[in-house]
Design a protein around this nucleic acid. Sequence first.
DNA 1: TGCGGTCTTATGGTATACCAACATACAGAA
DNA 2: TTCTGTATGTTGGTATACCATAAGACCGCA
Lengths: 236, 236
Amino acid sequence: MKPADTIAALRIETPPATLREMALERMRRAIISGLFEPGGRLVERTLCDHLGVSRSVIREVIRHLEAEGLVEMIAKQGPIVARLEWDDARQIYEIRAALEATAVADCARVATKDVKAQLREALDELDRTSRQNSPLGILDATTSFYQIIFRTGGHTIAWDIVSRLNSRISRLRVMTLSSANRMTSGPAQIREIFAGIECNDPEAAAKACRAHVAAAAMIAETILGEKASSVHPASV
Amino acid sequence: MKPADTIAALRIETPPATLREMALERMRRAIISGLFEPGGRLVERTLCDHLGVSRSVIREVIRHLEAEGLVEMIAKQGPIVARLEWDDARQIYEIRAALEATAVADCARVATKDVKAQLREALDELDRTSRQNSPLGILDATTSFYQIIFRTGGHTIAWDIVSRLNSRISRLRVMTLSSANRMTSGPAQIREIFAGIECNDPEAAAKACRAHVAAAAMIAETILGEKASSVHPASV
DNA sequence: TGCGGTCTTATGGTATACCAACATACAGAA
DNA sequence: TTCTGTATGTTGGTATACCATAAGACCGCA
């Protein structure tokens, strides 16, 4: 009897894919990919036509995206695609640095051969996409690299948070990653994180991780072309 | 001409308070306060009767709460109040430790006389409610203490995240805080954080903050009466 | 008595109808 | 020409209607 042939494996878990879930997924992707301009209005009836669903569905999806921070409601006018201020982006990078560094350190503590192999695989994928200079490929590869790290440490909630934050800076990330790639420093920095994990050195891995995020933040700042003229001298 | 008599002050900002927003607020409070049992079903039509609004409103509110993690959808059955596993709580305390320590350190770096005065006020309120042994009062006081800290450092997004996380462990928090109060260690720990901020010592403040969260997590674990028999030996 | 089939009902998923408010365009008067 | 009042249309807010399905009750048959 194969392991999968257990009684439990018989259970039918229908992912019944309600209209709402599909619409949510598509809307999210549309916003993240930049199909809808930041600040652009999301006219409900228009979206109904585009997606082929009723307003109920659209409105519930918008509520969800609103709670995720991808959509803002402006009173008496309706939903718009959330704009990204540099100050928000700065904070997001800062939070990511904290959460990712923690996850990386934990991962380095407990990483087994198996985990390291998975990470290596993700790195190879990253190299491949880097050589092809495929921004979206790089982003996916980076994402799965980190996902393995968070999963290994059991940081499911932190992963949720990071994913959500990342979706808010997705456009920035694409530019950041390809820019980092052009300078060939991006993959190198991630390799450094991996090096720390490989020899189970939490401090080194965490340090590399912080450096990586900080570098990304700096590139992002340059791209946004804004000064971090924040009144709040929070640490970077 | 008084300062408030400017042209700008004429602007009418209607907080138009849509039904949805009010319903959202009430539902959230109802869940947080434990009026709805964790795991309990949230039957839409029943909620309509209770709140006196239509299903559209209820459903959109539920979408929002779902994205916040307070409500879970179970397929073909509808929404239930999210249950809290100890593993989730553990992760939440861990994330809080990271974010709050960062915020506290930043606050200690830049805290002015004014900020310190505000914090002292919050502390006094905490003392007052502690003596009265009023769990909800303690919780509110603690919340405003931290809110001042996050606001001072400009960590608006981190504050959002922490608030959201806290609402997921609200029941636990009430018990934790009053328990900590009974042992009289809670207020003392918070005072320690304040001490670090008062003499602008980021490291000391952050350390006290981590200690405070860790203590809360330990109490929470005892209360939940479960072993952290996690497969993932993540740091505590 | 136990099993299977069927009917009922409760419930969520989806669509649509109605309304109030805001914005725009336009017409008329000073 | 410019300003103001009005009409109209677009849009979000809210309520309701309809449908499919799943869970439970009930009944009849072996």
